[in-house]
Amino acid sequence: MRHEFRLTVGPVGFRIGSDWREPLDRLAALYDGYPETALPDFTVRLFAQRPWRRFIRPSVMIGGDYMLPDAAPMALAHGLLAAEMGMNLQMALGQRRYLLLHASAAEKGGKAVLMTGASGAGKSTLSALLGERGWRLMGDEFALVDCETGLLHAFPRLVSLKNEAIALFEGQVDARRFGPKLSDTPKGTIRHMRPNDEAVAHMAEPVKPALLLFPRFGHEAAVRPMGAGEVFVRLTQASTNYVALGEAGFDALSSLVKTVPTRAIDYPDTETALRLVEQLWTESSL
């Protein structure tokens, strides 16, 4: 590979190689201050489909230690997104040390709230907003559960803001934290945002999960209890490696479900959601 960039996100080290310089320059700027890694856990490769495609209508193929056989190439202008997807792919296919939950997380007072649910539920946006309002953002996409200790490890990659969510942050946070606005991606318009300094400085500190929420956007405000069986099933569905971790994964997940209070919350707008989260957080710490 012609160009290389290395970084550590939470407890996971990455090496990213690229046929082009540009996507890695963008990564380096946004991930400035994240630790280096000498022996990365995963390698990501961004490469041209054919040698001449480096220059002519350049399109980026996403590869690495773990690959999907028919991943479609992306425009070079979306190279930053390709790099982020490449890292996600390694985690989704290759992570075997931590139970990986497709969930966002934020910390306050040494304990964490976990938010999961179908895509479009708003878990990413909510965690990012919490991260700007006195909480420490632990991650907007993946949460890592240590199977031995039950503690939650942060994985604060760039926040991937989509469509309407972008406007919630533009003008509110330091402009230097934003990546370029990427239009017409497969997911619409995307803009990456660097987590704040607090999130980066403390990313190596795991904490106890204290509240688990299943948010749902587009409904009247409501809080509902959930049966433990349903919670367990939905978390297995939200995990990419639950089955692969075997009994250790079973123990970690079942004890998470047994010990962490869980609620489903419906919300019509983000301000209401944040209020509900704070309210449930206060109640759960009583």
Binding site: G13, A38, L39, D41, R96, R97, V243, A244, G246
Partner: peptide, 21 residues
């Protein structure tokens, strides 16, 4: 082995054990 290598090799054994089962 270096600590990072020990962790990576343990991950690989965990993965192999899963495939074996």
């Amino acid at each position: 082995l270096p600590a990072a290598a020990v962790r990576l090799m343990a991950d690989a054994r965990r993965s192999a054990e899963h495939q074996r089962r």
